[in-house]
Design a protein around this nucleic acid. Sequence first.
DNA 1: TTTCGTGCAAATCATTTGCATTCCA
DNA 2: TGGAATGCAAATGATTTGCACGAAA
Lengths: 143, 143
Amino acid sequence: MKEILEKLRVKGVTLTPQRIAIVEFLKKITAHPTVDDIHKAIRRKYPTMSMATVYSTLELLKELGEIQELSIRKRGKACFDSNPKLHHHFLCRKCGKITDVEVDCPIIKKGWVDECKVEEAQAYLYGVCSECLKKEKSKKDKS
Amino acid sequence: MKEILEKLRVKGVTLTPQRIAIVEFLKKITAHPTVDDIHKAIRRKYPTMSMATVYSTLELLKELGEIQELSIRKRGKACFDSNPKLHHHFLCRKCGKITDVEVDCPIIKKGWVDECKVEEAQAYLYGVCSECLKKEKSKKDKS
DNA sequence: TTTCGTGCAAATCATTTGCATTCCA
DNA sequence: TGGAATGCAAATGATTTGCACGAAA
Protein backbone atom coordinates (compact mmCIF):
# COMPACT_ATOMS: atom_id res chain seq x y z
CA MET A 1 0.00 0.00 0.00
CA LYS A 2 2.56 2.52 1.13
CA GLU A 3 4.69 1.65 -1.88
CA ILE A 4 1.92 2.54 -4.25
CA LEU A 5 1.36 5.91 -2.65
CA GLU A 6 5.10 6.47 -2.67
CA LYS A 7 5.26 5.53 -6.32
CA LEU A 8 2.52 8.02 -7.10
CA ARG A 9 4.27 10.74 -5.12
CA VAL A 10 7.48 10.12 -7.06
CA LYS A 11 5.56 10.51 -10.29
CA GLY A 12 4.50 13.94 -9.12
CA VAL A 13 0.93 13.10 -8.15
CA THR A 14 -0.57 15.31 -5.47
CA LEU A 15 -1.72 12.98 -2.73
CA THR A 16 -4.95 14.47 -1.51
CA PRO A 17 -6.98 12.67 1.17
CA GLN A 18 -9.58 11.78 -1.46
CA ARG A 19 -7.06 10.20 -3.78
CA ILE A 20 -5.48 8.28 -0.94
CA ALA A 21 -8.90 7.01 0.10
CA ILE A 22 -9.65 5.80 -3.42
CA VAL A 23 -6.28 4.08 -3.78
CA GLU A 24 -6.66 2.40 -0.40
CA PHE A 25 -10.16 1.24 -1.20
CA LEU A 26 -9.15 -0.18 -4.58
CA LYS A 27 -6.06 -1.95 -3.40
CA LYS A 28 -7.92 -3.55 -0.50
CA ILE A 29 -10.80 -4.93 -2.54
CA THR A 30 -10.64 -8.03 -4.73
CA ALA A 31 -14.00 -7.39 -6.42
CA HIS A 32 -14.43 -5.21 -9.49
CA PRO A 33 -16.24 -2.10 -8.27
CA THR A 34 -18.08 0.38 -10.43
CA VAL A 35 -17.57 4.11 -10.12
CA ASP A 36 -20.69 4.19 -8.03
CA ASP A 37 -19.50 1.43 -5.71
CA ILE A 38 -16.33 3.37 -5.08
CA HIS A 39 -18.18 6.62 -4.56
CA LYS A 40 -20.66 5.09 -2.12
CA ALA A 41 -17.95 3.33 -0.13
CA ILE A 42 -15.77 6.37 0.27
CA ARG A 43 -18.64 8.70 0.99
CA ARG A 44 -19.00 7.01 4.34
CA LYS A 45 -15.65 8.50 5.31
CA TYR A 46 -15.76 11.64 3.15
CA PRO A 47 -19.40 12.69 2.81
CA THR A 48 -18.55 15.44 0.34
CA MET A 49 -16.64 13.23 -2.10
CA SER A 50 -18.09 13.92 -5.52
CA MET A 51 -18.51 11.67 -8.52
CA ALA A 52 -16.35 14.04 -10.54
CA THR A 53 -13.45 13.42 -8.21
CA VAL A 54 -13.90 9.66 -8.38
CA TYR A 55 -13.93 9.79 -12.17
CA SER A 56 -10.89 11.98 -12.40
CA THR A 57 -8.89 9.93 -9.92
CA LEU A 58 -9.73 6.70 -11.71
CA GLU A 59 -8.64 8.27 -14.98
CA LEU A 60 -5.38 9.31 -13.39
CA LEU A 61 -4.71 5.86 -11.93
CA LYS A 62 -5.47 4.29 -15.25
CA GLU A 63 -3.03 6.53 -17.08
CA LEU A 64 -0.36 5.73 -14.54
CA GLY A 65 -0.93 2.03 -15.08
CA GLU A 66 -2.06 1.34 -11.53
CA ILE A 67 -5.49 -0.04 -12.40
CA GLN A 68 -7.41 -1.15 -15.44
CA GLU A 69 -10.90 -0.46 -16.63
CA LEU A 70 -13.23 -3.23 -17.77
CA SER A 71 -16.16 -2.90 -20.12
CA ILE A 72 -17.36 -6.43 -19.58
CA ARG A 73 -20.93 -5.33 -18.88
CA LYS A 74 -22.23 -4.56 -22.33
CA ARG A 75 -24.11 -1.26 -22.30
CA GLY A 76 -23.58 -1.25 -18.57
CA LYS A 77 -21.39 0.76 -16.31
CA ALA A 78 -17.64 0.52 -16.33
CA CYS A 79 -15.88 -1.32 -13.55
CA PHE A 80 -12.33 -1.33 -12.35
CA ASP A 81 -9.67 -3.83 -11.51
CA SER A 82 -7.00 -2.78 -9.09
CA ASN A 83 -4.67 -5.33 -10.63
CA PRO A 84 -3.18 -3.76 -13.76
CA LYS A 85 -1.46 -6.96 -14.89
CA LEU A 86 -2.72 -8.90 -17.89
CA HIS A 87 -5.46 -11.33 -16.93
CA HIS A 88 -8.97 -12.06 -18.06
CA HIS A 89 -12.49 -11.98 -16.64
CA PHE A 90 -15.61 -14.03 -16.38
CA LEU A 91 -19.08 -12.55 -15.90
CA CYS A 92 -21.81 -14.83 -14.52
CA ARG A 93 -25.12 -14.17 -16.24
CA LYS A 94 -27.03 -15.54 -13.27
CA CYS A 95 -25.54 -13.67 -10.34
CA GLY A 96 -23.66 -10.93 -12.15
CA LYS A 97 -20.43 -11.58 -10.34
CA ILE A 98 -17.15 -10.89 -12.11
CA THR A 99 -14.21 -13.17 -11.39
CA ASP A 100 -10.61 -13.14 -12.50
CA VAL A 101 -9.51 -15.76 -15.00
CA GLU A 102 -5.84 -16.47 -14.61
CA VAL A 103 -5.36 -18.72 -17.60
CA ASP A 104 -2.54 -17.80 -19.90
CA CYS A 105 -3.48 -17.43 -23.52
CA PRO A 106 -0.41 -17.43 -25.76
CA ILE A 107 -2.02 -15.35 -28.50
CA ILE A 108 -4.26 -12.93 -26.67
CA LYS A 109 -1.58 -10.98 -24.92
CA LYS A 110 0.60 -7.98 -25.50
CA GLY A 111 2.85 -8.38 -28.49
CA TRP A 112 2.07 -8.65 -32.18
CA VAL A 113 -0.97 -9.93 -33.99
CA ASP A 114 -1.48 -9.54 -37.76
CA GLU A 115 1.28 -6.91 -37.88
CA CYS A 116 -0.55 -4.83 -35.29
CA LYS A 117 1.21 -3.78 -32.11
CA VAL A 118 -0.86 -4.96 -29.14
CA GLU A 119 -0.46 -2.80 -26.06
CA GLU A 120 -3.38 -3.98 -24.01
CA ALA A 121 -5.50 -7.12 -24.10
CA GLN A 122 -8.60 -8.23 -22.28
CA ALA A 123 -10.71 -11.29 -22.76
CA TYR A 124 -14.24 -11.45 -21.44
CA LEU A 125 -15.99 -14.74 -20.84
CA TYR A 126 -19.74 -14.96 -20.25
CA GLY A 127 -21.71 -17.86 -18.84
CA VAL A 128 -22.68 -19.44 -15.55
CA CYS A 129 -20.30 -19.58 -12.60
CA SER A 130 -19.61 -22.71 -10.56
CA GLU A 131 -21.69 -21.51 -7.61
CA CYS A 132 -24.75 -20.84 -9.72
CA LEU A 133 -24.31 -24.19 -11.44
CA LYS A 134 -24.26 -25.88 -8.04
CA LYS A 135 -27.43 -24.08 -7.02
CA GLU A 136 -29.16 -25.07 -10.25
CA LYS A 137 -28.10 -28.66 -9.77
CA SER A 138 -29.35 -28.94 -6.19
CA LYS A 139 -32.66 -27.42 -7.25
CA LYS A 140 -32.96 -30.00 -10.01
CA ASP A 141 -32.08 -32.89 -7.68
CA LYS A 142 -34.90 -31.93 -5.32
CA SER A 143 -37.57 -31.78 -7.96
CA MET B 1 -28.88 -13.04 -47.73
CA LYS B 2 -32.16 -14.60 -48.73
CA GLU B 3 -31.33 -17.55 -46.49
CA ILE B 4 -30.99 -15.35 -43.47
CA LEU B 5 -34.35 -13.71 -44.05
CA GLU B 6 -35.86 -17.13 -44.64
CA LYS B 7 -34.30 -18.39 -41.42
CA LEU B 8 -35.81 -15.49 -39.54
CA ARG B 9 -39.22 -16.06 -41.10
CA VAL B 10 -39.11 -19.72 -40.05
CA LYS B 11 -38.36 -18.63 -36.53
CA GLY B 12 -41.55 -16.61 -36.59
CA VAL B 13 -39.99 -13.18 -36.98
CA THR B 14 -42.22 -10.60 -38.63
CA LEU B 15 -40.27 -9.32 -41.62
CA THR B 16 -41.02 -5.64 -41.79
CA PRO B 17 -39.26 -3.45 -44.37
CA GLN B 18 -37.28 -1.84 -41.57
CA ARG B 19 -36.00 -5.15 -40.27
CA ILE B 20 -35.12 -6.34 -43.74
CA ALA B 21 -33.21 -3.13 -44.36
CA ILE B 22 -31.22 -3.55 -41.17
CA VAL B 23 -30.39 -7.18 -41.89
CA GLU B 24 -29.33 -6.33 -45.43
CA PHE B 25 -27.17 -3.47 -44.26
CA LEU B 26 -25.46 -5.57 -41.60
CA LYS B 27 -24.80 -8.57 -43.76
CA LYS B 28 -23.31 -6.43 -46.50
CA ILE B 29 -20.90 -4.50 -44.32
CA THR B 30 -17.61 -5.84 -43.01
CA ALA B 31 -17.03 -2.97 -40.60
CA HIS B 32 -18.40 -2.85 -37.07
CA PRO B 33 -21.09 -0.18 -37.12
CA THR B 34 -22.58 1.54 -34.11
CA VAL B 35 -26.32 1.91 -33.62
CA ASP B 36 -25.98 5.40 -34.97
CA ASP B 37 -24.08 4.28 -38.07
CA ILE B 38 -26.86 1.85 -38.84
CA HIS B 39 -29.57 4.40 -38.19
CA LYS B 40 -27.91 7.03 -40.38
CA ALA B 41 -27.32 4.60 -43.24
CA ILE B 42 -30.85 3.26 -43.30
CA ARG B 43 -32.46 6.65 -42.84
CA ARG B 44 -31.40 7.46 -46.37
CA LYS B 45 -33.87 4.86 -47.58
CA TYR B 46 -36.40 5.07 -44.74
CA PRO B 47 -36.41 8.65 -43.46
CA THR B 48 -38.76 7.81 -40.61
CA MET B 49 -36.72 4.94 -39.22
CA SER B 50 -36.34 5.60 -35.53
CA MET B 51 -33.56 4.78 -33.13
CA ALA B 52 -35.98 2.72 -31.08
CA THR B 53 -36.55 0.42 -34.04
CA VAL B 54 -32.85 0.04 -34.66
CA TYR B 55 -32.24 -0.84 -31.03
CA SER B 56 -35.06 -3.33 -30.88
CA THR B 57 -34.10 -5.04 -34.13
CA LEU B 58 -30.49 -5.35 -33.05
CA GLU B 59 -31.66 -6.85 -29.76
CA LEU B 60 -33.76 -9.35 -31.68
CA LEU B 61 -30.96 -10.34 -34.05
CA LYS B 62 -28.65 -10.77 -31.10
CA GLU B 63 -31.08 -13.07 -29.32
CA LEU B 64 -31.48 -15.12 -32.47
CA GLY B 65 -27.74 -15.49 -32.72
CA GLU B 66 -27.43 -13.66 -36.02
CA ILE B 67 -25.09 -10.93 -34.84
CA GLN B 68 -22.98 -10.11 -31.83
CA GLU B 69 -22.53 -6.96 -29.83
CA LEU B 70 -19.09 -5.61 -28.95
CA SER B 71 -18.22 -3.33 -26.08
CA ILE B 72 -14.66 -2.80 -27.18
CA ARG B 73 -14.93 1.00 -26.89
CA LYS B 74 -14.68 1.54 -23.17
CA ARG B 75 -17.36 4.01 -22.04
CA GLY B 76 -18.21 4.42 -25.68
CA LYS B 77 -21.08 3.30 -27.76
CA ALA B 78 -21.76 -0.30 -28.57
CA CYS B 79 -20.97 -1.66 -31.98
CA PHE B 80 -22.11 -4.72 -33.83
CA ASP B 81 -20.57 -7.56 -35.74
CA SER B 82 -22.69 -9.26 -38.34
CA ASN B 83 -20.60 -12.38 -37.94
CA PRO B 84 -21.89 -14.24 -34.88
CA LYS B 85 -19.11 -16.80 -34.88
CA LEU B 86 -16.40 -16.74 -32.25
CA HIS B 87 -13.57 -14.43 -33.17
CA HIS B 88 -11.75 -11.56 -31.57
CA HIS B 89 -11.19 -7.87 -32.20
CA PHE B 90 -8.49 -5.27 -32.34
CA LEU B 91 -9.09 -1.56 -31.79
CA CYS B 92 -6.48 0.86 -33.11
CA ARG B 93 -5.91 3.72 -30.71
CA LYS B 94 -4.65 5.97 -33.49
CA CYS B 95 -7.35 5.65 -36.14
CA GLY B 96 -10.11 4.01 -34.11
CA LYS B 97 -10.67 1.25 -36.60
CA ILE B 98 -11.83 -2.13 -35.36
CA THR B 99 -10.55 -5.21 -37.15
CA ASP B 100 -11.30 -8.89 -36.77
CA VAL B 101 -8.67 -11.09 -35.22
CA GLU B 102 -9.01 -14.61 -36.45
CA VAL B 103 -6.43 -16.23 -34.22
CA ASP B 104 -7.67 -19.17 -32.24
CA CYS B 105 -7.02 -19.15 -28.55
CA PRO B 106 -7.42 -22.53 -26.81
CA ILE B 107 -8.90 -21.02 -23.67
CA ILE B 108 -10.86 -17.98 -24.74
CA LYS B 109 -13.82 -19.83 -26.21
CA LYS B 110 -16.95 -21.68 -25.22
CA GLY B 111 -16.34 -24.55 -22.83
CA TRP B 112 -15.18 -24.79 -19.25
CA VAL B 113 -12.84 -22.59 -17.26
CA ASP B 114 -12.37 -22.85 -13.49
CA GLU B 115 -15.56 -24.94 -13.23
CA CYS B 116 -17.54 -22.16 -14.90
CA LYS B 117 -19.58 -22.82 -18.01
CA VAL B 118 -18.49 -20.42 -20.74
CA GLU B 119 -21.23 -19.65 -23.25
CA GLU B 120 -19.72 -16.63 -24.96
CA ALA B 121 -16.20 -15.29 -25.23
CA GLN B 122 -14.64 -12.20 -26.68
CA ALA B 123 -11.12 -10.90 -26.57
CA TYR B 124 -10.38 -7.25 -27.18
CA LEU B 125 -6.92 -6.14 -28.17
CA TYR B 126 -5.82 -2.50 -28.09
CA GLY B 127 -2.83 -0.92 -29.73
CA VAL B 128 -1.67 0.46 -33.05
CA CYS B 129 -2.68 -1.13 -36.35
CA SER B 130 -0.28 -1.95 -39.15
CA GLU B 131 -1.40 0.98 -41.28
CA CYS B 132 -0.88 3.53 -38.56
CA LEU B 133 2.51 1.97 -37.77
CA LYS B 134 3.50 2.38 -41.42
CA LYS B 135 2.41 6.03 -41.37
CA GLU B 136 4.39 6.66 -38.21
CA LYS B 137 7.43 5.01 -39.70
CA SER B 138 7.36 6.98 -42.95
CA LYS B 139 6.98 10.18 -40.97
CA LYS B 140 10.01 9.25 -38.87
CA ASP B 141 12.06 8.34 -41.94
CA LYS B 142 11.44 11.76 -43.45
CA SER B 143 12.57 13.70 -40.41
C1' DT C 1 0.55 33.45 -5.06
C1' DT C 2 -0.21 30.58 -8.43
C1' DT C 3 -1.45 26.24 -9.71
C1' DC C 4 -4.07 22.18 -8.92
C1' DG C 5 -7.89 19.50 -7.00
C1' DT C 6 -12.52 19.38 -5.34
C1' DG C 7 -17.53 19.66 -5.24
C1' DC C 8 -21.59 21.11 -7.06
C1' DA C 9 -24.77 21.64 -10.67
C1' DA C 10 -25.81 21.76 -15.28
C1' DA C 11 -24.96 19.66 -19.73
C1' DT C 12 -24.32 15.83 -22.74
C1' DC C 13 -24.84 11.46 -24.84
C1' DA C 14 -26.35 6.75 -25.38
C1' DT C 15 -29.95 3.97 -24.38
C1' DT C 16 -34.68 2.85 -22.73
C1' DT C 17 -39.50 3.38 -22.16
C1' DG C 18 -44.52 4.69 -22.78
C1' DC C 19 -47.89 5.19 -25.76
C1' DA C 20 -50.66 6.29 -29.78
C1' DT C 21 -50.59 4.92 -34.53
C1' DT C 22 -49.76 1.82 -38.26
C1' DC C 23 -48.76 -2.40 -40.26
C1' DC C 24 -48.27 -7.37 -41.15
C1' DA C 25 -50.03 -12.28 -40.82
C1' DT D 1 -59.14 -8.17 -37.19
C1' DG D 2 -55.77 -8.43 -33.47
C1' DG D 3 -51.42 -8.66 -31.81
C1' DA D 4 -46.98 -7.00 -32.99
C1' DA D 5 -43.93 -3.31 -34.79
C1' DT D 6 -43.01 1.48 -35.45
C1' DG D 7 -42.03 6.31 -34.45
C1' DC D 8 -42.02 9.98 -31.61
C1' DA D 9 -41.04 12.19 -27.44
C1' DA D 10 -40.04 12.05 -22.86
C1' DA D 11 -37.39 9.63 -19.25
C1' DT D 12 -33.40 7.56 -17.52
C1' DG D 13 -28.69 6.78 -16.25
C1' DA D 14 -23.87 7.17 -16.79
C1' DT D 15 -20.40 10.22 -17.71
C1' DT D 16 -18.49 14.89 -18.66
C1' DT D 17 -17.91 19.67 -18.15
C1' DG D 18 -17.74 24.55 -16.32
C1' DC D 19 -16.80 27.09 -12.75
C1' DA D 20 -16.13 29.04 -8.06
C1' DC D 21 -13.90 27.87 -3.99
C1' DG D 22 -10.37 25.90 -1.09
C1' DA D 23 -6.00 23.52 -0.47
C1' DA D 24 -1.16 22.39 -1.67
C1' DA D 25 3.50 23.66 -3.59
